[in-house]
């Protein structure tokens, strides 16, 4: 469960209003797509949700815990996959996964079983003994993804997860997201591609210049777009040609 209430954030002392009085909520069992063009404020919002940025105003709760007041409890119940997978190059994939399992306190037996499962799912078993330095961009993304899945988080937050993944891995990830939600957990991910959101999401929020301009199921949004020129326009912007 995710709740944002009146969240704002500006950069450069107010010169750039990246997120503007944004409110939304995502229920358990839901896949929520956060859709918007480049520079709309998606990454900024997500960074505030996971505790990487402080909001100027507003409140964010993850699984019932306020991210600023009870950060450890909130963080224990979420997983985050950044858009740009910066990981310790000098650890092997296995060491990295073990490190994450340690800091998320995943018990030995469970961690082994999950590692095996996810490594297989994303075809990383072969490479896991190598230094991350030797991984391609996509492989890095996958190792971060697996690391984020190890503790089976209540809330799974991903920033542009499909960018850079090969089609098969993207497919597997989508399958996994669906499965995850069927267990009553929450998935929140951002994308700038309409089709991705359309196919996968229960609900979609559209963000533009920091503001949530529309939010609902795809059908609702399409309905609304027929009446509103601006939404229509943004749909066109977000459709891949």
């Amino acid at each position: 469960m995710i709740k944002l209430h009146g969240v704002s954030k500006s950069y450069n002392k107010g010169a750039v209003k990246a997120v503007d009085n944004l409110s939304l909520s995502v229920k358990p069992g839901e896949i929520f797509g956060f859709l918007g063009p480049n520079g709309a404020g998606k990454t900024t919002t997500i960074k505030m949700m996971v505790g990487l940025l402080q909001s100027d105003s507003g409140t964010i709760t993850i699984n019932g815990y306020n991210i600023e007041q009870e950060p450890l409890k909130a963080k224990s119940s979420l997983s985050y996959v950044p858009d740009n997978p910066e990981v310790y190059e000098k650890l092997t994939g296995l060491e990295y996964l073990n490190f994450l399992a340690d800091v998320y306190r995943v018990p030995a037996r469970i961690r082994k079983e999950r590692m095996e499962r996810f490594l297989q799912l994303f075809e990383m078993t072969q490479a896991v003994g190598d230094l991350i330095q030797s991984y391609s961009h996509g492989m890095r993304q996958k190792i971060v993804l697996i690391g984020a899945l190890l503790h089976e988080p209540e809330v799974f937050i991903l920033d542009e997860p499909m960018v850079g993944l090969d089609p098969k891995s993207a497919h597997n990830l989508k399958e996994y997201m669906r499965e995850h939600c069927n267990q009553g957990k929450t998935v929140f991910f951002s994308t700038h591609v309409l089709e991705v959101a359309e196919k996968l999401c229960d609900r979609i929020g559209i963000i533009r210049r920091g503001q949530l301009i529309a939010c609902g199921t795809m059908a609702e949004l399409k309905q609304q777009a027929q009446n509103e020129g601006s939404l229509e326009k943004i749909f066109l912007e977000l459709t891949e040609v």
């Binding site: 310790y88 650890l91 296995l94 060491e95 996964l97 073990n98 490190f99 399992a101 340690d102 800091v103 306190r105 018990p107 030995a108 037996r109 961690r111 082994k112 590692m115 095996e116 078993t125 072969q126 490479a127 896991v128 003994g129 190598d130 230094l131 330095q133 030797s134």
Partner: peptide, 30 residues
Amino acid sequence: EVTARKDISSDRLAKGMSQVSAPAWAIAKR
């Protein structure tokens, strides 16, 4: 370029997967 890909043996994989450390110690090791 780092040491060429060598397939990790299932033994080593299994052993590597079940090493548990306390968080502080995990951070020291990192």
